[in-house]
Design a protein around this nucleic acid. Sequence first.
DNA 1: TTGAAAGCGCTAACAG
DNA 2: CTGTTAGCGCTTTCAA
Lengths: 353, 353
Amino acid sequence: MATMHDVARLARVSVSTVSYVLTGTRPISEATRTRVLAAMAELDYQPNAMARGLATRRSRIVGLLMPMDERGLGATETAFVTGAAAAASAAGYHLVLSPVGVADLDVLRRLATQGMFDGVVLMEVQVEDGRVAALQEAGLPVVLIGRTGDTAGLSYVDIDFEQTVHEAVDHLVGLGHRRIVYVNHSAEAIAAGYGPAVRTRTAFCAAMARHGLEPVMIASEDSAAGGRAALSAAVAQVPDLTAVLAMNESAIFGILGELANRRRAVPEDVSVVSMVTSPQVAELAHPALTAMTSPGAALGRIAMEALLRQLEGAAMEHHQQLLPCVLEIRGSTGPAARTVGDGELTGSGPPDR
Amino acid sequence: MATMHDVARLARVSVSTVSYVLTGTRPISEATRTRVLAAMAELDYQPNAMARGLATRRSRIVGLLMPMDERGLGATETAFVTGAAAAASAAGYHLVLSPVGVADLDVLRRLATQGMFDGVVLMEVQVEDGRVAALQEAGLPVVLIGRTGDTAGLSYVDIDFEQTVHEAVDHLVGLGHRRIVYVNHSAEAIAAGYGPAVRTRTAFCAAMARHGLEPVMIASEDSAAGGRAALSAAVAQVPDLTAVLAMNESAIFGILGELANRRRAVPEDVSVVSMVTSPQVAELAHPALTAMTSPGAALGRIAMEALLRQLEGAAMEHHQQLLPCVLEIRGSTGPAARTVGDGELTGSGPPDR
DNA sequence: TTGAAAGCGCTAACAG
DNA sequence: CTGTTAGCGCTTTCAA
């Protein structure tokens, strides 16, 4: 309510002096500084954010851009948001949550040129993503959570899917599993170039190859029903599978449910590893899921910190960083059921028909 | 980048004319309007949000204030956020996510007087909540998601816990259950005046009384471990219980796990209803949970719409609305196990020791 | 060490 | 129907 003018008058100084006391950009005698501070306290003065923003051309507002479909955010995405929000807030920035779909390029361009954002963090990045170019054309500093196919010249943090998949496969192989089926996101997601789906797919092939094993992969809708269908498909293809590696947080419980239906005990008959999963979700299952825990909040925080550093320093340094998920062993994995021979073998659960 | 001046010059009109074309607050001849519009298009003009905000003293930014503890948001809270964000965005407002704890009253006051927010939605409201008063003193329009003990003169939307609990209890009683245990949030949460915990507690007593039944209530930590402990305590207190009503989304899977440990089949031996739960979470369980589905996104949307209406119209009308959760029957409830007599009876599962 | 004054880009009287 | 101009509240030269 009180303006800088009011403070200046009460302290018997000019407005510029008040401003300098506030910003500290020029020396002020101790005497006047205390007078000004006292006046501020007395009037309960708070600088007006809009006015300051207009004068400095910096809003101290950063955007967090993400598509928000009707089915809401998963636990991992939510962690991105809270991590980023905490980091922004700690640095004295405001975080605006903007639902911007991959198709809303015009909306995005408008947002970018309104001068409301000092910079943005972009979530749910596709391998081919027009939003990145649009943002760069607008001259707005961007940090991605996730990454495009060509990452030259841009800042991002992402999960190290290679590393994550390799660790997961190593864990299972270490337990003696050889017939491991990978349940990925939907075929559409893969076709659309959804990074996590595409990258883990490649990585799984590589990881299995390294152990001399055949990679079997099944796409699954992001739902419990999708998971059930995927598991059925997996069993049809590899009747004697002993382990499932699932990339699909939404499908994982369907997978578990279908295993239960088929009387395949976890982990005695089939081991299950859930990839890129939050501990909260992993704990929900019974037994609790061995999972590759996604560094959700950390990723959000690191992305935001990188962006803010880019805003503070004029230097246009790029921050590119991959964080692996960490293996947390819980109850859903165990030694592979004993098999006869190597290629031919007895199924470890009863047949289904 | 281009300013209103540039547009004015190119269109050979004054800045005010450009402004009026933009705001539509005074008639403009078709000829000049098209000239101005053409100039805007040519220059790719976007009005500067800060400048407009300063001039109009309205930022078109609303805040969403919530405490963000380290353990992140639950599915229901996340739905509040996405619902509110979508509504704000649809109305052309920006939504700032601000982590403001119940204790951060000074932070809140600073936020409120910076002139950054036209209004705010406050989440995670306590029965006794100093933030509400602080906001009102600052003269900032507020809508609560949740509500304080005394709601005189303020706007809120909240879940109708009375109704929700009654429906849940009626469902179980209708299935023949009489020994129903209520698992609430933690004792600390109740003591701290956490609305949902306090209100459901009262409602459960009333609902049971209406059926002439004894209300048994157990507090539980918000975790799977808490849920297991709570179920153990429940069984200790009511060995022959046939139904559990759980208010605790974080504990529900612990409850299910412990039931499985004790070889009490769901729903054959024990029926389980989860209160204030998102469908996604309910679907995760096996069998899927019969639940009182929280109107999460709707609540967020309604709160935001009420706030925006308050901002647009000068009228200081209050919006007070309760929405019940809706019963969605899935696989976790069924008829009560047959019992002998009414008070004395045979347990429906095997004893635990 | 301080003050005066010119903007930042826009809106909204006021005046034609 | 349109133009001129005085702010909105702050920062930051320029001048003392």
